[in-house]
Nucleic acid binder design. Structure first.
Lengths: 253, 253
DNA sequence: AAATATTTGTCCGTATGTATT
DNA sequence: TAATACATACGGACAAATATT
């Protein structure tokens, strides 16, 4: 697990060599959990290791610098600036606001858009409504320590949750906005996780570069009595977040 | 959610335009859940929509053809070939072999490598062993319908599971190999999910193109009495798989 | 059946970006 | 820094297969 590093590198793939090298170095920093301040090997060594020219390594490092992953100092070397990913817990009762606390500044939710509209077939089915029923849709971004972490879309039944947008905008938290609508406890039902390249809107909102990856989590929240609260689709910047699914009780509990 | 489509497109980013377009079209096919046989808009319309030359769209479609996502017929159009992703359930008691059955051919596991070695600090801690304790490491690939789905690394205590590799090679399933070692039931403890670009070895084993994404799931399996069985790190081809985390009991259960 | 429109496939040339030496 | 080779992106024109009228 702690070998030198795997070697990528294929031309004509639509991904420039310098970006492949940048991705490899970034993955390596995260995989080996290098703490802030760790020195990267010198450019010449990296070039040799990846089997490319030093210019190409320099282009990769420039990109990582612009991402804030590393810092280069003339005559000294290149050093890890930001390493570890934030852990976002998807366990039954955890909430984003609780989940990330203690790791970084308290996350703040920002409302981008609110709309009342007809549910499409899929959302209606998940919410237990007839297709075309009125729902409220919230588009939000959350940040931790000023860095955008996730971009979410919330769907909820329009009548019961008519003030969800206003409450969220005021309180900065979905849990608190739901509480304002009378939902004082809810559980996470099933969650589906997938990953893909970020689209243009996600790149902008999450401050990502083209080719960046988003973890897509689509989940259903229900009250303890079984009533469905909301459908949530969240997109996390994969370079900054990992999702943790904890078993509720295991063995000795 | 069913707007025309989002528009990416940034040059000088190390990711070729045609690849960004290919990613956008692929995401769109998956997101809108287009069934096999659906016609894509003509190249000219796609070019107009994404604001690029038709040749660039053609390069994107060529890439998607090589991935097996679409099929083009001269004079007729371009059609969706493979749409929906396989769902892999990460719930408490489900196993890969049960999980995927009914969606595709039964998955078959192939042993790539077996090694007895000293545990590094992280694996030792997870397994509840002292650092440097002897463990067995298994490198495997599993396929469904002949298509590679996941590439996994298993770590287990060496003494108790000394024949794990041989059993896995013979039986083609970790669950059955563990059963041969006396583990007849086990639960999934915590799981961590992240995503990143595939490295060279993963590209080869999972038959991916450069820039492809892998979902990385790292989990701990324990017996009902609390004894730790194995640490598993699986890498799934994100274009082919989604992970489903079902709540064990919710509300009315 | 025939003419026309639509759609994918191929070829030309040119300018810019990428990677090496 | 410069010279070189290749990949990327664009623009236009036309051929080949299919669909429409």
């Amino acid at each position: 697990m702690t070998q030198p590093t795997p070697v990528p590198v294929l031309p004509g793939s639509g991904v420039a060599l310098w970006r492949q090298i940048a991705d490899a170095i970034r993955s390596d920093i995260v995989a080996r959990d290098l703490p802030k301040g760790t020195a990267l090997p010198p450019e010449q060594a990296l070039a040799l290791h990846y089997g490319v020219n030093r210019h190409t390594v320099r282009a990769a490092i420039r990109a990582l610098r612009e991402e804030g992953i590393v810092r280069a100092e003339q005559g000294r070397g290149t050093f890890v600036e930001a390493g570890k990913r934030l852990s976002y817990h998807l366990s039954q009762r955890t909430r984003l606001s609780e989940s990330l606390s203690g790791q970084a500044g308290a996350p703040s939710g920002q409302l981008l858009e609110e709309a009342i509209e007809a549910a499409d077939a899929r959302v209606a089915a998940a919410l237990g409504l007839v297709a075309g029923a009125e729902i409220v849709r919230l588009e939000t971004v959350s940040r931790a320590d000023g860095v955008p972490v996730s971009r979410s879309t919330h769907f909820a039944e329009a009548h019961r949750f008519h003030s969800l947008g206003a409450d969220f905008a005021r309180l900065g938290s979905i849990t608190q906005a739901l509480a304002a609508a009378g939902v004082h406890d809810y559980l996470r039902g099933s969650t589906t996780v997938s990953a893909r390249q970020a689209d243009a809107e996600e790149m902008q909102r999450l401050e990502l570069v083209p080719g960046s990856i988003v973890l897509v989590s689509e989940g259903l929240d229900v009250e303890p009595d079984g009533r469905v609260v909301q459908v949530v689709r969240s997109r996390f910047a994969a370079a900054r977040v990992e999702l943790v699914i904890a078993a509720p009780k295991v063995g000795r509990g």
